[in-house]
Protein backbone atom coordinates (compact mmCIF):
# COMPACT_ATOMS: atom_id res chain seq x y z
CA UNK A 1 0.00 0.00 0.00
CA UNK A 2 1.27 3.46 -0.91
CA UNK A 3 1.05 5.92 1.98
CA UNK A 4 -0.35 9.43 1.65
CA UNK A 5 3.15 10.90 1.90
CA UNK A 6 4.35 8.58 -0.86
CA UNK A 7 1.39 9.54 -3.04
CA UNK A 8 2.31 13.19 -2.54
CA UNK A 9 5.91 12.38 -3.51
CA UNK A 10 4.79 10.61 -6.69
CA UNK A 11 2.58 13.55 -7.63
CA UNK A 12 5.42 16.02 -7.10
CA UNK A 13 7.86 14.05 -9.22
CA UNK A 14 5.41 13.33 -12.02
CA UNK A 15 4.21 16.94 -12.20
CA UNK A 16 7.81 18.12 -12.50
CA UNK A 17 8.52 15.44 -15.13
CA UNK A 18 5.54 16.53 -17.24
CA UNK A 19 6.22 20.22 -16.76
CA UNK A 20 9.82 20.14 -17.94
CA UNK A 21 10.13 18.90 -21.50
CA UNK A 22 12.17 19.82 -24.57
CA UNK A 23 10.67 23.02 -26.06
CA UNK A 24 8.41 22.43 -29.05
CA UNK A 25 10.35 24.70 -31.38
CA UNK A 26 13.32 22.33 -31.05
CA UNK A 27 11.32 19.11 -31.37
CA UNK A 28 9.60 20.49 -34.49
CA UNK A 29 13.01 21.00 -36.12
CA UNK A 30 13.88 17.36 -35.39
CA UNK A 31 10.98 16.22 -37.53
CA UNK A 32 11.88 18.29 -40.57
CA UNK A 33 12.92 15.86 -43.26
CA UNK A 34 15.26 18.11 -45.20
CA UNK A 35 18.56 18.75 -43.48
CA UNK A 36 22.28 18.66 -44.20
CA UNK A 37 24.80 16.72 -42.12
CA UNK A 38 26.03 19.97 -40.58
CA UNK A 39 22.49 21.18 -39.76
CA UNK A 40 21.86 17.79 -38.19
CA UNK A 41 24.95 18.03 -36.02
CA UNK A 42 24.03 21.57 -34.88
CA UNK A 43 20.49 20.51 -34.08
CA UNK A 44 21.62 17.51 -32.03
CA UNK A 45 23.95 19.85 -30.11
CA UNK A 46 21.07 22.26 -29.49
CA UNK A 47 18.94 19.33 -28.33
CA UNK A 48 21.62 18.13 -25.94
CA UNK A 49 21.90 21.59 -24.35
CA UNK A 50 18.15 21.79 -24.00
CA UNK A 51 17.98 18.30 -22.51
CA UNK A 52 20.51 19.23 -19.85
CA UNK A 53 18.51 22.35 -18.94
CA UNK A 54 15.32 20.29 -18.74
CA UNK A 55 17.13 17.74 -16.58
CA UNK A 56 18.28 20.44 -14.12
CA UNK A 57 14.80 21.99 -13.89
CA UNK A 58 13.27 18.56 -13.22
CA UNK A 59 15.91 17.73 -10.62
CA UNK A 60 15.37 20.96 -8.68
CA UNK A 61 11.88 19.66 -7.87
CA UNK A 62 13.12 16.45 -6.30
CA UNK A 63 12.46 16.88 -2.56
CA UNK A 64 15.69 17.46 -0.70
CA UNK A 65 17.90 17.89 -3.74
CA UNK A 66 18.49 21.61 -3.26
CA UNK A 67 19.38 20.94 0.39
CA UNK A 68 22.37 18.86 -0.66
CA UNK A 69 25.82 20.40 -0.70
CA UNK A 70 25.97 22.62 -3.79
CA UNK A 71 29.01 20.93 -5.29
CA UNK A 72 27.39 17.53 -4.70
CA UNK A 73 24.35 18.80 -6.65
CA UNK A 74 26.67 19.63 -9.56
CA UNK A 75 28.44 16.26 -9.26
CA UNK A 76 25.13 14.35 -9.34
CA UNK A 77 23.87 16.25 -12.36
CA UNK A 78 27.15 15.97 -14.26
CA UNK A 79 27.45 12.32 -13.40
CA UNK A 80 23.90 11.42 -14.39
CA UNK A 81 23.29 13.77 -17.34
CA UNK A 82 24.09 11.29 -20.11
CA UNK A 83 22.13 8.44 -18.51
CA UNK A 84 19.15 10.65 -17.69
CA UNK A 85 19.08 11.95 -21.27
CA UNK A 86 19.18 8.45 -22.74
CA UNK A 87 16.40 7.36 -20.42
CA UNK A 88 14.25 10.34 -21.37
CA UNK A 89 14.98 9.82 -25.10
CA UNK A 90 14.09 6.13 -24.81
CA UNK A 91 10.81 7.02 -23.14
CA UNK A 92 10.00 9.50 -25.94
CA UNK A 93 10.84 6.91 -28.63
CA UNK A 94 8.71 4.30 -26.91
CA UNK A 95 5.62 6.48 -26.93
CA UNK A 96 3.09 6.19 -29.72
CA UNK A 97 4.04 8.83 -32.23
CA UNK A 98 2.18 10.10 -35.27
CA UNK A 99 2.81 8.05 -38.37
CA UNK A 100 6.29 8.51 -39.83
CA UNK A 101 7.79 10.41 -36.91
CA UNK A 102 9.69 7.45 -35.47
CA UNK A 103 11.25 6.76 -38.86
CA UNK A 104 12.33 10.39 -39.34
CA UNK A 105 13.89 10.49 -35.88
CA UNK A 106 15.65 7.19 -36.33
CA UNK A 107 16.97 8.23 -39.73
CA UNK A 108 18.27 11.47 -38.28
CA UNK A 109 20.22 9.61 -35.63
CA UNK A 110 21.58 7.09 -38.15
CA UNK A 111 22.76 9.89 -40.47
CA UNK A 112 24.33 11.96 -37.73
CA UNK A 113 27.84 10.56 -38.17
CA UNK A 114 27.61 8.49 -35.00
CA UNK A 115 29.20 5.11 -35.62
CA UNK A 116 27.05 1.98 -36.05
CA UNK A 117 28.99 0.45 -33.17
CA UNK A 118 27.24 2.90 -30.88
CA UNK A 119 23.89 3.23 -32.60
CA UNK A 120 23.11 -0.47 -32.21
CA UNK A 121 23.32 -0.55 -28.38
CA UNK A 122 21.47 2.76 -28.21
CA UNK A 123 18.50 1.52 -30.23
CA UNK A 124 18.62 -1.81 -28.40
CA UNK A 125 18.25 0.14 -25.17
CA UNK A 126 15.34 2.16 -26.60
CA UNK A 127 13.67 -1.10 -27.59
CA UNK A 128 14.19 -2.66 -24.15
CA UNK A 129 12.65 0.39 -22.49
CA UNK A 130 9.73 0.23 -24.91
CA UNK A 131 9.11 -3.41 -23.98
CA UNK A 132 8.54 -2.44 -20.36
CA UNK A 133 5.47 -0.32 -21.14
CA UNK A 134 6.18 1.92 -18.16
CA UNK A 135 3.52 4.30 -16.95
CA UNK A 136 4.55 7.92 -16.57
CA UNK A 137 4.89 7.62 -12.77
CA UNK A 138 7.42 4.82 -13.22
CA UNK A 139 9.32 6.82 -15.85
CA UNK A 140 9.53 9.89 -13.63
CA UNK A 141 10.62 7.93 -10.55
CA UNK A 142 13.21 5.97 -12.50
CA UNK A 143 14.65 9.24 -13.81
CA UNK A 144 14.87 10.63 -10.27
CA UNK A 145 16.54 7.43 -9.05
CA UNK A 146 19.09 7.64 -11.89
CA UNK A 147 19.98 11.20 -10.92
CA UNK A 148 20.22 10.37 -7.20
CA UNK A 149 22.93 7.72 -7.58
CA UNK A 150 25.31 8.17 -4.64
CA UNK A 151 28.28 6.61 -6.43
CA UNK A 152 28.78 9.33 -9.04
CA UNK A 153 32.31 10.74 -9.27
CA UNK A 154 33.19 13.54 -6.83
CA UNK A 155 30.11 13.17 -4.61
CA UNK A 156 31.33 13.91 -1.09
CA UNK A 157 28.33 13.07 1.08
CA UNK A 158 27.10 9.79 -0.39
CA UNK A 159 24.91 9.03 2.62
CA UNK A 160 22.92 12.23 2.14
CA UNK A 161 22.23 11.19 -1.46
CA UNK A 162 21.29 7.65 -0.37
CA UNK A 163 18.77 9.12 2.06
CA UNK A 164 17.07 10.82 -0.88
CA UNK A 165 17.27 7.86 -3.25
CA UNK A 166 15.96 5.18 -0.88
CA UNK A 167 12.41 6.59 -0.48
CA UNK A 168 12.20 6.84 -4.28
CA UNK A 169 13.22 3.19 -4.67
CA UNK A 170 10.70 2.14 -2.05
CA UNK A 171 7.86 4.02 -3.74
CA UNK A 172 8.81 2.64 -7.15
CA UNK A 173 8.95 -0.90 -5.80
CA UNK A 174 5.44 -0.56 -4.38
CA UNK A 175 4.13 1.08 -7.55
CA UNK A 176 5.53 -1.77 -9.67
CA UNK A 177 3.93 -4.37 -7.39
CA UNK A 178 0.55 -2.63 -7.66
CA UNK A 179 0.71 -1.84 -11.39
CA UNK A 180 2.16 -5.17 -12.50
CA UNK A 181 0.81 -7.78 -10.05
CA UNK A 182 1.33 -10.61 -12.55
CA UNK A 183 4.98 -9.67 -13.07
CA UNK A 184 6.77 -9.99 -9.74
CA UNK A 185 10.12 -9.46 -11.50
CA UNK A 186 9.04 -6.14 -13.01
CA UNK A 187 10.84 -3.95 -10.45
CA UNK A 188 14.03 -5.99 -10.92
CA UNK A 189 13.73 -5.53 -14.69
CA UNK A 190 13.47 -1.75 -14.21
CA UNK A 191 16.61 -1.75 -12.08
CA UNK A 192 18.28 -3.86 -14.75
CA UNK A 193 17.77 -0.99 -17.18
CA UNK A 194 19.83 1.23 -14.89
CA UNK A 195 22.71 -1.19 -15.35
CA UNK A 196 22.21 -0.99 -19.11
CA UNK A 197 22.36 2.80 -18.85
CA UNK A 198 25.78 2.59 -17.21
CA UNK A 199 27.05 0.59 -20.18
CA UNK A 200 25.57 3.15 -22.59
CA UNK A 201 27.29 5.89 -20.63
CA UNK A 202 30.60 4.19 -21.25
CA UNK A 203 29.83 3.83 -24.97
CA UNK A 204 28.85 7.49 -25.08
CA UNK A 205 32.29 8.64 -23.98
CA UNK A 206 33.90 6.62 -26.75
CA UNK A 207 31.27 7.74 -29.25
CA UNK A 208 31.98 11.41 -28.55
CA UNK A 209 35.67 10.90 -29.17
CA UNK A 210 35.11 9.26 -32.56
CA UNK A 211 32.40 11.78 -33.53
CA UNK A 212 34.80 14.62 -32.84
CA UNK A 213 37.38 13.04 -35.12
CA UNK A 214 34.73 12.66 -37.87
Amino acid sequence: EISKEQQALIKLIVDAYKRHQIPQDITKKLLQEQYSAEENFLLLTEMATSQVQVLVEFTKNIPGFLSLDHEDQIALLKGSAVEAMFLRSAQVFSRKMPSGHTEVLEERVRKSGISEEFITPMFNFYKSIGELHMIQEEQALLSAITILSPDRPYVKDQQAVERLQEPMLDVLRKLCALQHPLEPQYFARLLGRLTELRTLNHYHTEMLASWRVN
Binding site: H20, T49, Q53, V56, Q73, I74, L77, K78, A81
Partner: peptide
Amino acid sequence: PASNLGLEDIIRKALMGNLEE
Protein backbone atom coordinates in the same frame (compact mmCIF):
# COMPACT_ATOMS: atom_id res chain seq x y z
CA PRO B 1 37.53 16.55 -18.44
CA ALA B 2 37.71 19.38 -21.00
CA SER B 3 34.58 18.16 -22.75
CA ASN B 4 32.72 18.10 -19.44
CA LEU B 5 33.39 21.79 -18.80
CA GLY B 6 30.67 22.77 -21.27
CA LEU B 7 28.25 20.42 -19.52
CA GLU B 8 29.18 21.81 -16.10
CA ASP B 9 28.67 25.40 -17.28
CA ILE B 10 25.18 24.61 -18.52
CA ILE B 11 24.36 22.82 -15.27
CA ARG B 12 25.67 25.65 -13.05
CA LYS B 13 23.76 28.31 -14.99
CA ALA B 14 20.56 26.30 -14.97
CA LEU B 15 20.89 25.57 -11.24
CA MET B 16 21.32 29.24 -10.43
CA GLY B 17 18.79 30.67 -12.83
CA ASN B 18 15.29 30.12 -14.03
CA LEU B 19 14.85 28.24 -17.33
CA GLU B 20 12.11 30.57 -18.53
CA GLU B 21 14.40 33.57 -17.97
